[in-house]
């Protein structure tokens, strides 16, 4: 099957003012994302994540290597017919309302008339902004801006969605809404390529992950494989009595090759606790 994204030996250098040597932002990066996959690119600030995404969108030109989207050279305008992009901290036009914003981007993609209006309504519902659709973006919160940004990325029903830090600066509730939207895209078979600093969220939504550091891809593969600790096994029990736990301990200690490393109550995350006590509590 044709990959949604194919980046081969991508190199990108910048020449900052006052510096003789060029700065290599992306150094021989290769990756491939299958259709329908959710791929997360993670790395510290300045590691080359955004530059890789911009090269894929034709916003910067590679010094060498190539980027292809569903087999089309990403420097060609036509390749963007199948791509939706949400940049990091997007501002959009404050003078437009949410619905007008979606209409503007829809028209740029060739949508017209009833089809466009139907799509605008559908997307506003999808990102839970139907009631705020006629308000100007100047009055939107950060989370609402991210959601309208995601809606504009989806306006032409792209097969690939690129999200650059989609939850940057968004509170945990807004962050979870965006996470749910990514799950929804995955269910619909849309390929998602995202980069984020929120590692827990990447772990939650991504099928495959690439770790980029100083412009180089240092680790890449399916998330389950990358996270599995080869010589350890996890057993989680519910309703286990102290007697049963004692029996298990004794059983493990009777095996010379095995060692019980840790036993105790599993802990939730602070994010899950926060959501449980705020957003989930509000639900009827």
């Amino acid at each position: 099957m044709e990959p949604a994204v194919e980046i081969r030996n991508l190199v990108k250098e910048f020449r900052p003012a006052g510096r003789k040597e060029p700065l290599r932002a992306v150094d021989d990066v290769s990756l491939s994302i299958g259709a329908g996959e959710v791929y997360g690119l993670i790395g510290p600030n300045g590691s080359g994540k955004s530059t890789t995404m911009k090269a894929l969108l034709g916003l910067v030109q590679p010094d060498s290597g190539s980027c292809r989207i569903f087999g089309n050279d990403s420097l060609q305008v036509d390749s963007r017919q199948q791509v939706g992009f949400l940049p990091e901290n997007p501002y959009f036009y404050k003078h437009l309302s949410g619905a007008e914003t979606l209409r503007f981007y829809g028209k740029l993609c060739g949508l017209r008339g009833a089809a466009l209006e139907g799509r605008v309504k559908e997307l506003l519902e999808l990102v839970d902004l139907s009631e705020a659709g006629n308000r100007r973006l100047g009055g939107y919160s950060k989370g609402m801006l991210q959601r309208i940004g995601l809606a504009q990325a989806l306006v032409q029903e792209p097969r690939l969605v690129i999200l650059d830090e989609p939850t940057a600066g968004v509170d945990p509730i807004g962050s979870r809404q965006i996470r749910d939207l990514i799950f929804d895209l995955k269910k619909r078979g849309i390929t998602v390529f995202l980069c984020s600093h929120l590692l827990e969220q990447v772990q939650e939504v991504c099928d495959r992950v690439g770790i980029i550091h100083r412009g180089r891809m240092v680790k890449e593969g399916p998330l389950d494989e990358l996270l599995a600790v080869g010589d350890q096994t996890e057993i989680i029990l519910r309703g286990a009595s102290p007697e049963l736990l004692e029996k298990i301990r004794a059983l493990v200690s009777s095996d010379s090759g095995a060692e019980l490393l840790r036993a105790g109550r599993p802990r939730t995350t602070l994010e899950r606790l926060f959501l449980q006590e705020t957003a989930d509590r509000r639900k009827p």
């Binding site: 916003l59 963007r80 940049p87 997007p90 740029l108 504009q152 690129i162």
Partner: peptide
Amino acid sequence: EDRTLYTILAKPVP
């Protein structure tokens, strides 16, 4: 500056 250009050029707009 506002990065709105990114979202426009990321659409099929020459």
